[in-house]
């Protein structure tokens, strides 16, 4: 199971804890949307490659 964690803002302690548990013993990747010019092409590739995408607050 490959999880993609997408972050709309810098993750706080609660989000970090949930990510840690959800991705435990699983293949995980991440993408930061909270930048000036996100590489949407790369993000879509990552979404298509993942089994589950979680877009955190």
């Amino acid at each position: 199971m490959k999880i993609l964690n997408v972050y709309r803002s810098a993750p706080d302690d609660t989000t970090k804890k949930l990510v840690e548990i959800v991705t435990r013993d699983r293949d995980a990747d991440s993408f930061d949307l909270n930048v000036d010019a996100p590489d949407y092409d790369a993000l879509v590739d990552k979404i298509f490659a993942a089994d589950q995408t979680i877009c955190w607050w």
Binding site: R8, L33, P38, Y40, D41, L43, V44
Partner: peptide
């Protein structure tokens, strides 16, 4: 982001 991701997809 909705626009950017939709265009890329």
């Amino acid at each position: 982001h909705v626009m950017g991701i939709t265009k890329a997809a």
